[in-house]
């Protein structure tokens, strides 16, 4: 639609290469500024309007749908290499409104607003009647499973004591009765084997994060804990550019998005 119809904007095709460029910049922005949870990937462009901007440039007002990937935001893996969380694993989508400026051929984010929500239980049941649904992160079984997994990891760890950063997702499995959890950890200034009071341990100035997956299986008279953690390389903290009027803490963000990530170290599985 040409300019000059009284609306002040033009409508591009949602699959237009220029629209896709703006959408990909928006998704990169999401992944660079998420402080918790998982990286997202573009799923669909819902709407786009392009406004002329004086004295120069264009503003893309764009609505996009995203999907959660399996990569935690602290994982330095480029989001292009992260697979999408499947419906059977209880997928999560994001709905976002962005304003992206294109000036001198360069895109930059002016504003962003996103909400994320898990797929409905009914939809998960349609594709997999027996698949476990996402559980509340403050569920007592979830909290216990994370505590047990972290203790098991630190007990076998000869280096730094790792403390919990966040519980990222959890599922209660009915058969065999078990709790599956995923959580982020960070290295502290304590030595794992020497810790008596974890409360006195402090995260290192040069942050070193890890991401753990664990299953706690209930047994007669006890429980089994299996945990695998990937420890990411330390990353220097760099300031992040922010759009006008938005102030997002960046201390964790910069460590999650290096230009060329070194290899991570997988520790585990530990049983």
């Amino acid at each position: 639609v040409p300019l000059g119809l009284g609306l002040g904007y033009k409508e591009l095709n949602c699959d237009d290469p220029e629209t896709e460029q703006a959408a990909l910049v928006a998704v990169d922005y999401i992944n660079s500024n998420l402080l918790q949870g998982y990286k997202h990937t573009l799923n669909q462009i819902d709407k786009v309007k392009v406004w002329s901007r004086r004295p120069m440039g264009e503003v893309f007002e764009i609505e996009i749908d995203t999907l959660e990937t399996v990569c935690h935001v602290l994982d330095p893996t480029p989001s292009a290499n992260c697979s999408v969380r499947q419906l059977r694993q209880h997928a999560v989508e994001g709905d976002c409104d962005f304003r992206v400026l294109k000036q001198n051929g360069q895109f930059s984010v002016l504003s962003a607003k996103c909400d994320s929500s898990p797929d409905s239980a009914e939809d998960v049941r349609k594709v997999c009647p027996s698949c476990p649904l996402l559980a509340p992160l403050n569920d007592t079984k979830v909290v216990h499973a994370v505590d047990a997994a972290l203790a098991a990891f630190n007990a076998r760890n000869n280096g730094s004591y790792f403390q919990l950063v966040e519980v990222s997702r959890a599922q209660l499995v009915p058969l065999p009765a078990s709790t599956y959890v995923e959580f982020a950890v960070a290295a502290t200034d304590c030595v794992a084997q020497d810790v008596t009071d974890p409360a006195v341990c402090n995260m290192l100035a040069e942050k070193q994060y890890g991401f753990c997956k664990s299953t706690l299986t209930e047994k007669l008279g006890g429980e089994d804990v299996a945990v695998t953690c990937t420890v990411f390389p330390t990353q220097p903290v760099l300031p992040q550019p922010q759009p006008d009027g938005i102030n997002i803490p960046s201390s964790m963000v910069s460590s999650a998005t290096p230009e060329s990530p070194p290899d991570a170290v997988v520790v585990g599985p530990l049983v």
């Binding site: 990937t41 709407k47 419906l87 989508e93």
Partner: peptide, 27 residues
């Protein structure tokens, strides 16, 4: 739609520019 004899007339639904394609699956 009135067409001239021998002149092809576009048929079928109008292509909507938005929303765009789904890359993975729709929730």
């Amino acid at each position: 739609t009135v067409g001239q004899p021998g002149v092809a007339v576009a048929a079928g639904p109008v292509v909507r520019p938005c929303p765009g394609r789904i890359r993975h699956f729709k929730i």
